[in-house]
Structures are given as C-alpha cells and as structure tokens.
Simulated scan of single mutants.
Amino acid sequence: MSKLCSGRVVIVTGAARGIGRAHALAFAQEGAHVVVNDYGVSADGTGSSSGPASDVVAEIEALGGTAVANFDDVASWDGAERLVATAVETFGRLDVLVNNAGFLRDRMLVNLGEDEWDAVIRVHLKGHFAPLRHASAHWRSVAKSGTLPDARVINTSSGAGLQGSVGQSNYTAAKAGIAGLTLVAAAELARYGVTVNAIAPAARTRMTEQTFATTMAAPAEGFDAMAPENVSPLVVWLGSAESRDVTGRMFEVDGGRICVADGWRPGPTMTKSARWSPSELTPVIKDLLAEAPSPVPVYGA
C-alpha cells in the first residue's frame, strides 16, 4: 500500500525533541524523506549541539527511513537559506516545510527584559519567516520554470497566540504574529502551488513540562492525551497531497481533539453617516459589546 507522503521531501525545524521529533518520525513512517533541523539548544535557547538532530536521523534510519541532519539556526537568514538548500541538494526537491522550532523565556510583563523579548520573538517569529521566505523563493522558481509545485507549509502557533497567556507576553506576541503570517503567506503563495496552514498544539514537551507535569484525564485506557505524538498525524496529513484544497487555516490539536479555530472576523456593528463624537460613544459601545460574544479568557488569568 502506498504511504501518505511517499517520496515527499520534508523539512522539520526544531526536530530533535518533543513535537518536532514526533513530526519527523511520523513523516518518515509515511514514506517521506526528512531533513531533521535542530540547533541543539537548551530549553531556554542557550548553547548548541549537533547530537540531538543526529540522534533523530539515526532513529529514522533504524526504522528503514531516509533522513539528513541540519544544524543551522533557523532565525539566521543565511542559516535558513542553507536549510532549504540542504533539502534540495540532498533529495532534489522540497515539498513540505514544517516550522516548529522555538523556546521559552517566561516572565510577567513588568519583569520581562528586552533581551528576553528579543530572543523569543527572534526564534519563533523570525525563525518562521526566514525558512518560509527561502522555501517560497525556491517554489516560485520551480513554478516559473513550468512545473507547479504541490507544496505545503505548516506553521506552529499556540493557544497563547490565539488567546493570550499570563507570564508569556513575548511568546504570545510571537505566536500571534505567526498566525497572521500564515494568513498572508497562504494568500500570496497560492499562485505557486503552495498551501500554508498553522497548528496550535498542546502537548508535553521541554517547553511545557511544568504546565503539563501530570497527564490529562485519558478518554480511553492507556491513551496519553499529552503525548507529542498525538499532534503529528494532523501535521503529516497537512503535508500530504490530500490537503491541497486546505489553506489559510488554524487548527487547535491536542490528545484526540482537532478543532478548526475561528479567528478574528467582523462582529456587531453600528454605523452612521457622519463622524462619531467621543461623548456619544458610551451607549454605542455598550450596545455593541452586549451583542458580542465574551472573549475566551486568557490562559492563567
């Protein structure tokens, strides 16, 4: 039987541990050739090591799959370019980019330092943009040569990016930016045969081990609802040919749950044929808010 991603070439960033590792193994099990990218940093983004990515490549090869390690920093412009080149030069093509890499530096807003803000915005937001930019240029070149790609981008946002999270203003801002970037990229890249979607996963990883120190109540005996492997089936499907009609979407995924997130859209509206004055807005705003649904609470509020 043909596997869902047979022959497809997939880049997974931050693929040495947690959700990224689960993605890389799941794609390999479905027949994909995988570029396992990881800079090998600690949980707070310090240090680097080639060992973790190499270990995942060895795991994939032990299962009979094909993979190559890449150790570039995805938030480096040149590093992201080398990452895309690794896929094309090793396997002759690129079909799927899974942007997953990231780390946390959590603090309450009044204690958050500039370096902690910059570091998290850099690895999450620029670390999504830079690989996406270089992959997009590759796919545009392929399309202009006369062969329309059947390519996929899967970005990684978060419930924090959709709803906010106390103590994570830097992470929340980055993940919200990724959600917006996904919408724009989906609109711009459709002409080149590229779909762009995002996930907001919840799973037990190095970044969430304190939050998910205990397993959620399992709906079925033996099911670990917070295992990172629960997230990967959706990502593999989004990377397959089956998803070519799906783009510009955000999916929340955790345990056995998949939810299509319903983002910002126009709600209750009041209009008049002249400029409003501040003094008349009190009843107007009260009426509008009375018609609008209550916002989803910020995590940790």
Rank of each mutant, 00 (worst) to 15 (best):
P268S: 03
G31A: 02
A203Y: 15
I154W: 15
D44P: 15
Y299V: 14
V253W: 09
R204G: 08
G45E: 10
H134R: 03
F223D: 15
V196M: 12
G127I: 14
T147H: 08
R206K: 08
G20M: 08
A135W: 07
G255N: 08
S48K: 10
P228N: 00
A261D: 15
R206I: 05
P219E: 13
G14H: 04
V298K: 00
L181K: 04
W139H: 05
L238F: 11
I285W: 05
P201L: 10
E291Y: 03
L125F: 13
F251Q: 00
W77L: 08
S2H: 06
V56T: 11
T195I: 06
A217C: 10
T271A: 09
A220E: 07
T215L: 15
G47L: 09
P295N: 08
E229T: 02
L181G: 12
A75D: 12
M250N: 01
R17C: 09
D150E: 10
G102N: 01
L189Q: 00
D73L: 09
I121L: 00
Y299E: 15
L148W: 11
V253K: 00
C259K: 04
G193S: 11
F27P: 01
E30F: 08
D224P: 02
E116C: 12
A22R: 02
G40W: 11
V56Q: 04
H33E: 07
A292M: 13
G31N: 13
H23T: 00
L162H: 10
G193M: 06
A290W: 01
R140K: 11
K3T: 13
